[in-house]
Write a protein that binds this DNA or RNA. Structure first.
Lengths: 190, 190
DNA sequence: TTAATGCACTAACGTTCGTTAGTAAAAATA
DNA sequence: TATTTTTACTAACGAACGTTAGTGCATTAA
């Protein structure tokens, strides 16, 4: 089972660097240190590797969110959710990038299943924001726009965290939380 | 010259939908309605098409930023810059996606040149934020983290704007500006 | 009107792709 | 110890890839 993990990790890194389509099974095999045909003893196809990476990450995002304590204040609940999300990303920096960008190379029926999972994950955030607006804790923004803004901005983590690793995880998390929750400017906007 | 534009536009859409590597010259030719070999009467290679798309977009982003009036208040300058950026994206929804995601398939020396341009574009935002912090208009956030958060969140526009086209450009722009500048929460965070 | 250019075509090249078949050695199981 | 399973290998398959060569027609320039 060590080989399978090895292949998975190498694929994470390579799918992320070059993209799924630009990564060949021959390249992957070379990095792992085996012959291309040997990969098929562990995964039945290239797409199954992508499948494993994407759905593993989906599971992790969901679990992290579900493990959070129930909290009344939407503000705090949102912060917890954002931090949980950031936590999963920073602990799976390559895989989460694949999850975000390469999922479109999945085939049916996995593709539909994946889209469905993403949708319900986003829905959890949307409902927090809706509640926050109702309770007058949040500004009157469009919940969907807010969630998309929020989730995509978290992709920034990759650029900040991976290349030079100049930033500490907590610093990034604190800053992003602050920007999204309190904004950049102190001055009343609009 | 009409054919060349036609090819360029089809490539924008296809590179965006399937990714650069997963788009074949044969597929592209089929969409344009000509034979694969005929593409080479207009572009000397597949990569030259990607080149054209990426550098055209870079130019547009730069021009839009440079055309902005000089303004003292960093808050206003930042808002103008964000809106200019959003404007360029919404007017080139496919191309800007290619610009953001597929540039890594460029080869040297274009790749280095491209990275350099992105860097100096980001630097413009960083300097606005630094100035805002110095003038006490902005919170004490890390300028680089702020810029990356900001720019990546603008990718959200694609997901919101393209698929169903349910949102109006201005609504999206207003909401994103608001979130980034004033934050989501009204309650003091941290 | 003639020459030059632009743009499409057919045909094919060498390469790389994901994957399979068949085999042998090593590891796990009985 | 005997047997089954796992995992690696070599070799090769057909398909798809980016691209080139060579040709002819249509438009433009002289």
């Amino acid at each position: 089972m060590k080989r399978k993990l090895q292949i998975n990790l190498a694929a994470q890194s390579m799918f992320n660097d070059r993209g799924y389509s630009a990564t060949s099974m021959r390249d992957l095999a070379k990095v792992v240190g085996i012959e291309p045909a040997s990969l098929y003893n562990h995964y039945s196809s290239k797409e199954h590797i992508l499948n494993a990476i994407c759905f593993d990450m989906a599971e992790q995002f969901f679990e992290a969110l579900n493990d959070l304590p129930k909290i009344e204040s939407p503000s705090e609940e949102l912060e917890n959710s954002i931090r949980s999300h950031i936590d999963v990303i920073t602990k799976n920096i390559d895989a989460s990038r694949v999850f975000f960008l390469e999922w479109k190379h999945l085939n049916e029926p996995s593709l539909s299943e994946f889209k469905q999972m993403r949708k319900s994950y986003e829905a959890k955030f949307v409902s927090i924001i809706k509640r926050g607006i109702k309770l007058n804790e949040f500004h009157h923004i469009d919940p969907k726009v807010a969630v998309f803004t929020l989730l995509s901005s978290l992709n920034a983590i990759y650029d900040l965290y991976k290349p030079g690793r100049k930033f500490k995880t907590e610093v990034i998390a604190d800053n992003i939380c602050h920007i999204l929750l309190s904004g950049i400017s102190k001055i009343k906007n609009k």
